[in-house]
Simulated scan of single mutants.
Amino acid sequence: MKSQQSTQTMKPATAAKKLGVYLPATPAEFQEGVVSRAELNELQANPPAWLRALRESGPHPRPVVAAKLGVSIAGLARGGVTEALTTEQIDALKDERPEWLEKERATQAEVRKESARLKKRAAEKAEQAQQS
């Protein structure tokens, strides 16, 4: 007896997240349907014009906005940024350099520095454990 392979599908919100785009800005047919794994792979490999445009100019979802600004998603919220931003708006924020952005970037830098320190310490402990 042969088992039938079912096609993996996902909700548009999941697909948009995997593609790094803001769901409300996608075409209606994308928002209303389901996306198969094969369709997602095709979108990633050969992005249509609408996907290239969204990735280039936005609006971008919060994780992308946070990454482009060099802050955490929580840092965006503390700074009062709760909606999706376009690339132009992100660039304007970078140019304006508001106080909250500078503070959040410094906080993010400290977090990265501490993570690196802890990772190094764990590696050193693992190395010592192997030697003994």
Rank of each mutant, 00 (worst) to 15 (best):
residue 80 G to E: 12
residue 4 Q to T: 07
residue 128 Q to C: 04
residue 68 K to T: 00
residue 99 E to G: 02
residue 125 K to D: 01
residue 121 R to G: 00
residue 119 K to R: 10
residue 119 K to A: 13
residue 117 R to E: 14
residue 40 L to R: 08
residue 48 P to Y: 13
residue 82 T to G: 14
residue 125 K to L: 09
residue 107 T to D: 02
residue 48 P to M: 14
residue 36 S to K: 12
residue 93 L to D: 07
residue 54 L to S: 01
residue 16 A to D: 05
residue 25 A to D: 03
residue 7 T to V: 15
residue 44 Q to R: 11
residue 130 Q to M: 12
residue 26 T to L: 08
residue 24 P to A: 11
residue 127 E to P: 00
residue 35 V to P: 03
residue 92 A to I: 09
residue 114 E to Q: 14
residue 74 A to R: 03
residue 39 E to P: 12
residue 71 V to S: 05
residue 85 L to F: 08
residue 26 T to Q: 03
residue 93 L to P: 02
residue 56 E to N: 06
residue 41 N to E: 10
residue 19 L to R: 03
residue 33 G to F: 01
residue 130 Q to S: 05
residue 49 A to F: 12
residue 61 P to L: 03
residue 79 G to I: 11
residue 109 A to P: 01
residue 55 R to W: 07
residue 47 P to W: 07
residue 39 E to I: 05
residue 82 T to A: 07
residue 104 E to K: 11
residue 108 Q to S: 07
residue 97 R to D: 00
residue 70 G to L: 05
residue 60 H to E: 00
residue 21 V to S: 00
residue 75 G to Y: 04
residue 59 P to C: 10
residue 18 K to C: 01
residue 51 L to K: 04
residue 33 G to I: 02
residue 85 L to V: 07
residue 3 S to H: 10
residue 132 S to Q: 14
residue 113 K to E: 10
residue 13 A to E: 05
residue 124 E to W: 06
residue 69 L to A: 11
residue 103 K to Q: 08
residue 38 A to F: 01
residue 66 A to K: 00
residue 25 A to E: 02
residue 71 V to I: 12
residue 37 R to F: 08
residue 110 E to A: 07
residue 13 A to G: 14
residue 32 E to H: 15
residue 4 Q to G: 03
residue 33 G to H: 10
residue 13 A to R: 14
residue 18 K to Y: 11
residue 83 E to I: 07
residue 2 K to W: 00
residue 24 P to H: 04
residue 47 P to V: 05
residue 66 A to H: 02
residue 129 A to F: 12
residue 81 V to W: 04
residue 123 A to P: 01
residue 70 G to W: 06
residue 65 V to T: 08
residue 12 P to T: 06
residue 132 S to E: 07
residue 128 Q to L: 15
residue 31 Q to R: 15
residue 51 L to W: 09
residue 102 E to I: 10
residue 72 S to L: 13
residue 113 K to S: 10
residue 51 L to D: 08
residue 124 E to M: 11
residue 92 A to L: 08
residue 69 L to H: 04
residue 132 S to N: 03
residue 93 L to S: 02
residue 121 R to Y: 05
residue 6 S to A: 11
residue 39 E to N: 00
residue 119 K to P: 01
residue 94 K to A: 04
residue 94 K to H: 02
residue 77 A to S: 13
residue 131 Q to F: 08
residue 104 E to T: 08
residue 122 A to Q: 01
residue 121 R to E: 11
residue 126 A to I: 02
